[in-house]
Measured scan of single mutants.
Amino acid sequence: MAAAAAAGAGPEMVRGQVFDVGPRYTNLSYIGEGAYGMVCSAYDNVNKVRVAIKKISPFEHQTYCQRTLREIKILLRFRHENIIGINDIIRAPTIEQMKDVYIVQDLMETDLYKLLKTQHLSNDHICYFLYQILRGLKYIHSANVLHRDLKPSNLLLNTTCDLKICDFGLARVADPDHDHTGFLTEYVATRWYRAPEIMLNSKGYTKSIDIWSVGCILAEMLSNRPIFPGKHYLDQLNHILGILGSPSQEDLNCIINLKARNYLLSLPHKNKVPWNRLFPNADSKALDLLDKMLTFNPHKRIEVEQALAHPYLEQYYDPSDEPIAEAPFKFDMELDDLPKEKLKELIFEETARFQPGYRS
């Protein structure tokens, strides 16, 4: 834990890192770190609560700039109880001085990944967590956004079992017609939660990839272990087919990539493993919904509104309290091709509203 900075004593240090967030945020305490930044909790002297502050230093890398800009653009436009918001952003007053960006968010005690390492969940908890994931996802999908990296560590939890989806750095506007060349190379989302079509096709992607990830998360809540822990690309596919069985001819016809289709045709026939054999203690309604989410063919996979209306979630289902976005989200430009200098300018502009004396 960093010592509390005395008023006016300059930035606090946390594990050798400068955290320049005073005077409003003090009493910093280390939480963890990701690929390009550290997260601390801090005391907000204005709202009198502890908050989470993520320090991001992305400006050396085009990919990190892209992810940072995506996350900020999306989260500043989203407003939903099951999606983490941005409360404040701290950065230098000029673009030349801006080396880091500090993002202030609600402090959540833990995440689903940490929880599943230590606790076996009751059916009631599984049901409530799944409902909140789908409630947040309904809003995301209504904005025409794909999260693309749903996994237990991106689901934040607090002691009252509130759940918030975080990390929109890989999110995209849904565009089933656009052929994202190089899709697989830039697709760094965790393999275990990846839909089979991501490994088999490169053309376009749809909201059904997020539903697949939610199915993987439900299976993990039922058993405290990942359902498809593939060691590499082909191993991942083999794990999936080992449980779902061989795809039907109709399902194979959806695979545009001939090499991928021929690979699947070359494999020995596998039978589907019954879900109640894998999860003998699970609620039968939970397994019915799991089956509809972990469907090989993305066109037959359940959609988020149908999933919310499934009998497993009937005690929570309330369409009048499951809000959607006001308007579909649009990125003005494809960020993939922009140089990091341009992305830095866009991050600077996007964060201006939090600067003292800002006038829109």
Rank of each mutant, 00 (worst) to 15 (best):
K99N: 15
I95M: 06
Y25L: 12
S246R: 14
T206Y: 10
C216A: 11
C161W: 01
R79L: 11
G8C: 08
E322T: 00
S360L: 14
R277F: 06
S122C: 14
P11D: 10
R135E: 09
S29P: 04
D179A: 15
I103D: 06
D210H: 04
Q105E: 11
F183Q: 08
Y316T: 01
L267V: 05
Q62W: 05
I53R: 03
A52I: 11
Y317F: 15
Q355V: 06
H232I: 00
N281V: 09
I165N: 15
Y30L: 09
F354K: 11
S360M: 14
N154T: 14
I227D: 01
L258H: 07
L338C: 02
P268M: 03
E345V: 14
L121V: 08
S142L: 11
T94K: 08
A3L: 10
E12I: 13
Q97R: 09
P280E: 12
N253I: 15
A4S: 13
Q315S: 04
H232Q: 12
A325Q: 03
K344E: 13
Q132H: 15
C166L: 07
K54H: 01
L346N: 12
A174R: 09
K164T: 06
N47A: 13
I211V: 13
I103G: 04
Y102W: 02
P152D: 06
E326S: 01
P323K: 03
L234H: 11
H310P: 06
N238F: 09
I133F: 14
R277P: 04
I217V: 08
G182L: 12
V49S: 07
L137S: 11
P311F: 03
K300W: 05
W192R: 15
D288H: 03
P11R: 14
W192N: 10
K340P: 07
R50D: 05
F331C: 04
V21G: 07
G85F: 06
E109Y: 03
A7M: 06
L241A: 08
L150M: 14
K114F: 12
M293P: 03
P319L: 11
H310W: 02
G37A: 11
I347A: 07
T68Q: 03
I86N: 13
A219S: 14
K55R: 13
L121Y: 11
T118Y: 01
R70T: 01
P311T: 14
I72C: 03
G22F: 11
G32T: 00
F168V: 02
L184H: 10
P247F: 01
D177Y: 14
P323I: 00
Q97W: 03
V214S: 13
E96K: 14
S202E: 13
I74G: 10
P298C: 05
D175P: 02
V173Y: 07
N276F: 05
I209H: 11
A2V: 00
R24V: 09
D321K: 05
H178D: 10
I198T: 00
G32R: 03
V304Q: 12
E186Y: 05
T68Y: 00
R148N: 08
G10R: 14
I347D: 09
